Amino acid sequence: MATLKDRSKAKLCVLPDVTIHYPTNVQIGYNVFVNRGVQIDAPSSICIGDGTLIGPHVVINSGNHRFDAPDLWIRNQGHDLRPIIIGSDVWIGANVTILAGAIVGDGCVIGAGAVVSGKIPANSVATGIPARAVRRRGRRPTAENTEESNTAHMDHD
């Protein structure tokens, strides 16, 4: 079973069809919600902070195949294992993939379908493949600070 950081505060909601491989390498904070169909593969440590929401069909995997030697089958080249850290008060949208070595700061929102492979700064809203911060939480998009509104004023031929 995955380890809860503080069992006296243990509030964990896990919906059906969640799979955790290597659960002894997973540390989960309190008041975490894990939606249906989530897969967590933890050959290296995975830490999920307090109050985090994990959307449906998210994949979190702290291992990757090595593939640099073209004369060897990929399956025979071993794995690179790196820990994953997901901060507190994070919302991970549906179908997100979080790869080995990723660090998601406290208060982040990761948009549906994103692939996180690096560091996402605290309180960022991140989207895309690879996931990149597109704005900060607490700053609502306005006509002055959105790319869409900036390009709307450009001349188009």
Rank of each mutant, 00 (worst) to 15 (best):
Y30V: 05
I74P: 09
N31M: 06
G37E: 12
R66H: 03
I85M: 02
R82T: 01
V58M: 06
G29I: 13
N76K: 02
Q77G: 04
G49F: 01
W91R: 11
T52E: 07
S45N: 04
G49S: 02
N95S: 11
I74E: 01
F67E: 11
S45K: 12
Q39R: 09
D71R: 06
G37C: 05
L72A: 07
I40Q: 13
I85Y: 07
H65P: 10
G37T: 05
W73M: 02
V58Y: 08
F33I: 14
I40V: 11
I48K: 10
P83I: 00
P23W: 03
S88C: 07
F33Q: 14
P56F: 11
P83Y: 06
W91F: 11
D41C: 10
F33G: 13
I85L: 05
D89M: 03
F33N: 15
I84E: 10
H65M: 04
Q77P: 08
N64V: 07
V58R: 08
N31E: 15
I85F: 09
N95P: 12
G29R: 04
V59K: 09
I54T: 09
H65Y: 13
N31H: 14
D68V: 03
T52I: 13
G78S: 00
Q77L: 02
W73E: 08
G78T: 00
Y30E: 14
V90M: 09
G78Q: 05
I84T: 12
R66I: 06
H65T: 03
A94F: 08
S88W: 00
P56C: 06
V26C: 12
I40K: 13
G37P: 06
G49L: 01
P23C: 03
A69H: 00
H57C: 12
Y30I: 04
I92R: 08
P43I: 00
A94W: 02
V96F: 13
D41R: 09
N31W: 03
G55W: 06
I92V: 15
R75C: 15
L72N: 13
F67D: 12
Q77A: 10
V59A: 09
T52L: 13
Q27W: 01
G93V: 13
H57R: 14
I60N: 02
P70S: 02
G29P: 07
D68P: 04
V32P: 15
R66N: 14
G78K: 04
P83R: 01
P70A: 08
V59T: 08
V96D: 05
I54C: 13
